[in-house]
Amino acid sequence: MNLPATITWPEADGPRVARWRSESFVPPPRKVVLADDQITADVAYRLACEGTALLWRGDFQNARQLLLAVTRRLERKPRKPGVTPLDAFNLHRQTQSQRARTLGMLLIPLDGDYTIPLRRAPEVGQACIETYGPSDGEPSVTTLREVLGLIGAHEWRKKGVEIPLLAARIHPHYGVFSPVRGEYVDLVARTALPLASLDLAFDIGTGTGVLAALLAQRGVKKIIATDQDPRALACARENLTRLGYAAQVEVLQANLFPPGRAPLVVCNPPWVPARPASALEHAVYDPDSRMLLGFLNGLAAHLTPGGEGWLILSDFAEHLGLRTRSMLLAAIEQAGLVVAGREDIRPRHPKAADASDPLYLARAAEVTSLWRLRVR
């Protein structure tokens, strides 16, 4: 059993140690100094860039303002233009990583009951329980960015995301990909179901359970929805129960496929074949296309005769130079599959129209497709 990571900082009566919390699996900073409302944004920015973390002892709302001030200083740094889309992507990821590292240098203490012992601090107990689990009673330290993130996730979980095609809301849990981009939901809603699939379908990598719910709404009698992530499994079960589909959908922990075969197998894997910078990015980044290739290579063994596999995939990676269309088609062929048809949709998210975005050209050209695959 691995012991929790700890962080050490100086106090007047000697060094202190507390549990270190990071949902991004970032190691605790090695150098920590105490900071309060007297510190200036310029000094805080310089220390953070040097790798010195600031454990906050002042007003919580002032800490938020300081984080915004440091963010503004980061944004003033000129961006290097990428010569190619791939250069632009790599520079963007490098900038994101440096930004996260710098902004992660402002630290917040948590008492053993998840209370923040600072003036004007919000109540974060329930948000911490949803993210970290029940408290063990020990004090801990985390980044202000993580605190703000879990507060935001808690609000999203309460409010939910409106899914018009379901005429209902899906409530994402912390760390589970939120269905804020509705293109892939639209594709599953409008593609004709194979007749035999009305009895059984598999939803691979279900996440929030949104596609399983949509298949249930479309009349599929039985859906088996799989995921590896315990948070996703809990999230999907909660959403499907709330929507009244718990009896229709079985949520199962599995690496891709459940046992058996089905006439319809649906998968919406991460679209970008690159290494995630944190555990929370696994829904977007698929290193070496592991999930994509795992789905393709295992599909034939899990389809009933005449069945279809629905692969939902954006071509964003193709426009970035991370994957080519010929690579995708070759992987489909090598898996013993043929393309029976394809449905396409253009993106609607704001970044697709934001010319200031460093990846604008790729985003503007992006098309999301539902590939209908059959056994050759």
Rank of each mutant, 00 (worst) to 15 (best):
E11D: 13
L329R: 13
T6H: 15
G336W: 13
Y285C: 03
L34T: 14
R231Y: 09
A277D: 14
P81E: 14
V338Y: 09
L86P: 01
T8K: 14
A355G: 03
F177K: 08
V185A: 14
A201R: 02
L256C: 01
P358A: 01
G341T: 04
D227W: 03
R76C: 12
A189P: 02
R346N: 06
T84E: 09
M291A: 06
A100E: 14
T368D: 04
R76F: 09
R19N: 11
G160C: 02
P15T: 09
G298P: 02
V338F: 07
A352W: 01
L211Y: 02
I129V: 12
P358Y: 00
L55Y: 00
V338K: 13
L195G: 11
V210I: 07
R346T: 09
Q65G: 12
T95H: 14
V185I: 11
I345T: 13
G294P: 04
I7A: 15
P263K: 04
A335E: 08
E343T: 10
S326Q: 13
R190D: 14
T102L: 03
S140T: 00
H319G: 07
L233D: 13
A355C: 04
P15I: 04
A192T: 15
P85F: 00
T368K: 05
I332K: 10
E50W: 09
E75K: 12
L187M: 05
N239V: 07
H302Q: 09
S289T: 06
A88Y: 00
A18N: 10
I116G: 11
L68W: 06
K221G: 06
D13F: 07
P29I: 10
G336N: 13
D203P: 09
D111W: 01
R242D: 09
A41I: 05
E281T: 05
H319M: 05
H282Q: 15
G104W: 00
Y114C: 04
I170R: 02
A18G: 08
R346Y: 06
P258E: 06
G112W: 01
H302W: 02
S314I: 00
R101W: 02
N239G: 09
F60D: 10
I39Y: 04
L243Y: 05
A283G: 15
R323V: 03
A88I: 00
L150K: 10
P28A: 15
L148R: 11
N255E: 12
L240D: 04
D186N: 14
E123L: 07
W156N: 15
A355N: 09
R323Q: 15
P350E: 07
D344G: 05
G321E: 07
C235T: 10
